[in-house]
C-alpha cells in the first residue's frame, strides 16, 4: 500500500536552534500514529509544520504525491490536512453548526465531508450542534474542536494533546471517537499526548521524539519495551 502522508527529512530552525531536526515517516489512510516525547522535543512544532502553521526550514510534507508544506495553513487545509490546538480554540459565541458551516464552505472537495449530524454522532456531540460553543462543557469543547477540523473534510487529522483536562471516562470516550474517525472516515490521525493510558491503546504505531529527532518508532508494545525510550522519557520528565 502506498503511503497517504510522507514526511521527508523535515527541519525547523529558530535562529541556531533546531526544534525539529530531520524527521521522516509515512502514514497510511486510517492509521493512528501516536507522537510522544519529553516537553520541548519538537512534537508540537512538527505538528505545526504538517498543518502549515509553520514553514519548514527544509524538507517536505507530501500528501498523496503532492507537496503541501510551507504554503500556509489554509492551503494545507485545502490539501486535506487539519489540526486542533493544545488550548481549546473555537469561534466564541458561535454555535457549533455555524462553525462547521464555515469550515465546510472552505473545503474544495465538499463530497468528501461527512454531514454535521454524522460528525456530531461520531464525536458524541449529538444534540449540541445548535448551542453556542461557550455553553458546552470543557470536554465537549475539546471534541467540538475536532468536529471543526473534520468539517474541513481532512484526509489527515492532527490532534495536539486532545485529552488535556479530561477525566478517565472522557478520555476513553475520546479514544473511541478517534478510532471511529480513523476507521469509518478513513482519515489518518496523528495524536500528540502525554497520557499513555489514553494514547497506547489507541495508536497503531508510535513515534518517539527527543530533542527534535526520531528516537524510536514501532508498535505500542515495542515502544513500551524500548529501553532508550524509557531512559529518555523518564530521565527528562
Amino acid at each position: 500500500m502506498t503511503a497517504l502522508l510522507t514526511v521527508d527529512r523535515v527541519v525547523k530552525r529558530y535562529g541556531g536552534l533546531a526544534a525539529v531536526d530531520g524527521v521522516s515517516f509515512t502514514l497510511g489512510a486510517g492509521d493512528v500514529l501516536g507522537l510522544i516525547g519529553p516537553n520541548g522535543s519538537g512534537k508540537t512544532t512538527l505538528l505545526g509544520i504538517l498543518a502549515g502553521t509553520h514553514d519548514p526550514t527544509s524538507g517536505t510534507v507530501t500528501l498523496d504525491g503532492r507537496v503541501c508544506s510551507g504554503r500556509g495553513a489554509h492551503r494545507a487545509v485545502h490539501a486535506g490536512i487539519a489540526r486542533t490546538f493544545q488550548t481549546t480554540r473555537l469561534f466564541g459565541g458561535w454555535t457549533l453548526r455555524e462553525a462547521l458551516r464555515l469550515a465546510r464552505r472552505e473545503n474544495r472537495r465538499p463530497a468528501d465531508v461527512a454531514s454535521d449530524e454524522r460528525i456530531a454522532a461520531l464525536l458524541a456531540l449529538d444534540g449540541l450542534l445548535d448551542r453556542p460553543c461557550t455553553s458546552l462543557t470543557s470536554a465537549a469543547q475539546r471534541l467540538a474542536m475536532i468536529a471543526l477540523a473534520l468539517a474541513t473534510g481532512p484526509r489527515v487529522l492532527l490532534l495536539d494533546e486532545p485529552a488535556v483536562g479530561m477525566d478517565t471516562a472522557e478520555s476513553a470516550a475520546l479514544a473511541r471517537a478517534v478510532r471511529d474517525v480513523a476507521d469509518d472516515l478513513g482519515v489518518a490521525v496523528v495524536v500528540v499526548d502525554h497520557n499513555m493510558h489514553f494514547l497506547m491503546p489507541l495508536a497503531d504505531s508510535v513515534l518517539v521524539m527527543a530533542s527534535g529527532t526520531v528516537l524510536a518508532t514501532g508498535t505500542p508494545a515495542q515502544i513500551r519495551a524500548d529501553e532508550a525510550v524509557i531512559a529518555s522519557y523518564l530521565g527528562e520528565t
Binding site: 500556509g72 495553513a73 489554509h74 485545502h78 490546538f85 469561534f91 462553525a99 464555515l102 471543526l148 477540523a149
Partner: peptide, 24 residues
C-alpha cells in the same frame, strides 16, 4: 454572505480561521 462569515471568524480567532481553510 460567506465573506461576512469569514470576517467574523477572523475577528473571533484568526489562527483558527486559517486552520479551517479561510485565506485570511
Amino acid at each position: 454572505t460567506r465573506f461576512g462569515d469569514r470576517l467574523r471568524a477572523i475577528r473571533e480567532d484568526e489562527d483558527l480561521a486559517r486552520h479551517v481553510g479561510v485565506p485570511t
